[in-house]
Computed example of a mutant assay.
Amino acid sequence: MTDFSDDERAAVYRAIEERRDMRHFRPDPVDPETLQRLLEAAHRAPSVGYMQPWRFIRITDPDRREAIHALVEAERQRTADALDERRDEFLRLKVEGVRESGELLAAALMPDREGHIFGRRTLPEMDLASVACAIQNLWLAARAEGLGMGWVSLFDPEALRRELAIPEGGRPVALLCLGHVEAFYDRPMLEQEGWDRRRPLEELVHTEYWEG
Rank of each mutant, 00 (worst) to 15 (best):
E8H: 07
R14A: 13
E18Q: 14
R19M: 11
D21V: 12
M22Y: 06
P29K: 04
T34L: 14
L39A: 08
P46N: 02
S47G: 01
Y50Q: 12
Q52V: 03
W54S: 02
W54D: 01
R55L: 01
I57T: 13
R58S: 10
D61P: 11
D63C: 09
R65D: 06
R76V: 05
R87D: 02
D88W: 00
D88Y: 00
E89L: 07
F90T: 13
F90W: 12
L91H: 03
L93G: 09
K94E: 13
V95L: 11
V98D: 04
R99N: 04
E100N: 08
S101P: 06
S101N: 05
G102A: 12
P111Y: 03
R113F: 01
L123F: 12
E125L: 11
M126V: 01
D127A: 13
V131L: 01
Q136V: 01
R143W: 02
R143T: 11
E145C: 03
M149N: 12
V152F: 05
F155P: 00
F155Y: 06
E163S: 06
G169E: 12
G170N: 11
R171P: 10
P172I: 13
L176R: 00
C177A: 13
E182I: 00
F184E: 03
F184G: 04
F184T: 07
R187T: 05
M189H: 11
E193C: 04
R198W: 01
L201M: 13
L201G: 05
E203M: 11
E203I: 09
V205S: 15
H206G: 03
E208P: 06
Y209M: 12
E211T: 14
E211M: 08
